[in-house]
Nucleic acid binder design. Sequence first.
DNA 1: CAGGATCCATTGGGATACTG
DNA 2: CAGTATCCCAATGGATCCTG
Lengths: 125, 125
Amino acid sequence: MPAAKTAAPSPPDADSCKAFGNILDRVGDKWTVMVIGGLADGPMRFNALQRLITGVSHRMLTLTLRGLERDGLVKRTPFATVPPRVDYELTPLGHSLRPALEQLAAWVGTHRAAVEEARRAFDRQ
Amino acid sequence: MPAAKTAAPSPPDADSCKAFGNILDRVGDKWTVMVIGGLADGPMRFNALQRLITGVSHRMLTLTLRGLERDGLVKRTPFATVPPRVDYELTPLGHSLRPALEQLAAWVGTHRAAVEEARRAFDRQ
DNA sequence: CAGGATCCATTGGGATACTG
DNA sequence: CAGTATCCCAATGGATCCTG
């Protein structure tokens, strides 16, 4: 997704398009959505998240959380105990994203069957 | 986030989680979002779309449109003219997805600066 | 013009092992 | 427990050439 170096053509959105895709790549990422969903109701520890999110690997969860932290959507709080413990929670910015994601989730819930049916129909021929 | 509601580790979401991620992978994909945005106001031809969506390659646009067609979100209409012409347009199902995507787009518009600032702050240390 | 098909570099992401 | 590092294969996606 390293966006194009396309010479700047005229359209006014050439560059907002890039910025847009940039943010969207983070925000629309599968694990990102899952993590934000998981943190919706409050802080969670790393392992709790991993157990909650079926199928995420240790590595991917780490990377996803790093990305979210970098983007200011998630706050990381390490405790100096032993064994170590780290809590993750949504920042206000992270919370502000929830309605949009929930609407998306609702759409999937409502139309998932239709999509799956369309796929079957399409594949049948 | 299968159940996105409660952090309660309810067991039975292993598989809805997968289905969910499945649809989300299509729907949250960068080019998919762009294409739906491009088709929001009516049918468009292949090349028009490619010109509109900065940075998409011929191949990726083809694949994205195929995927959307398969999922029943986009309707493909070939004309038997020469040179050939193909129109793409959103189906009702495709249109039903717009509000959700527009809300996401609105979020990006509103918070893009904040995210970029967060990134700079994070990278600075 | 639309869209296969092929080639190929790059990346993503799982598995595993190690550290504080 | 949380996080890092390494290995390594599979998928991704751009470039290019070919067809109706």
